[in-house]
Amino acid sequence: MAKNSDNNRRKFMATTLQSVGLTALGGLLWSGYSDEAKASPLVLRPPAALPEDDFLKACIKCGLCAEACRNRDSNKDRDGNPRPSTLQMAKGGEHKLIGTPFFVPTDVPCYMCDDIPCVPVCPSGALDEASVTNEKGELDINMARMGLAVVHKESCVAFWGLQCDACYRACPLLDEAITLEYHKNERTGKHAFLLPVVHSDVCTGCGLCEKACVTEEPAIFVLPVEYATGKAGTHYVKGWDTQDQNRLKDAKEIHTVTERSEKEAADYLNMEVEY
């Protein structure tokens, strides 16, 4: 009898250990797959989307934003049928986190509706209405930062000296998000370059410029903001900017010590580059 219960206990322990072990195995595989599945950095999200990491946590993949985008009044063709919508839901095989909304400007850019139908319908908060609401409490699509347009000047024919202002004219924030800079064309000596310049403080990343671009592959294209911007760091203070100078008011003194180099100045000039 005692031996039997001992066997039972041993069997129970073994089964429990197996269950826990297999669960751990499953957890590792599942975590690995999920982590890879969400690693799709160059995706453009709907307006007012939280930063990508938070967005991926929050999005419940219901598709209400995409449905609102497709069925908005401004998306009807002449017969009153809905046209393809800006927002698509990621499918299997598209290498984006499945079921999350995104858009591809070269397919359908964001037309920046005044009433932003895609945002208020979001039930989870993945699209943050507050981020596109101005001080008056009105929805303001100009506050959206879906991405940032970037110009590749080697393939942009305006930089060759050809006259093209397709992106400039397509921009919903005409002469604000993209301006044209005039430069003298030294090659011909009598023409002007009309160069598109994107202003990141205004550009919403709607992608109308990318859609309008005339080159084989767009020379102006929208990237997620974090991939299209650099960062100077807080230790740079603009001495000519009183606003920026104010940052120094509350600054605390930091002592840093750099050890004095043993090398002579001549050594420094002659040494190889250290990586």
Binding site: G27, W30, Y33, S34, D35, K38, D53, K57, I98, G99
Partner: peptide, 14 residues
């Protein structure tokens, strides 16, 4: 648990 670790609704991925 996987949702908490990876930071994405884990079952919804598949």
């Amino acid at each position: 648990i996987v949702s908490a670790v990876v930071g994405v609704a884990a079952f919804e991925v598949l």
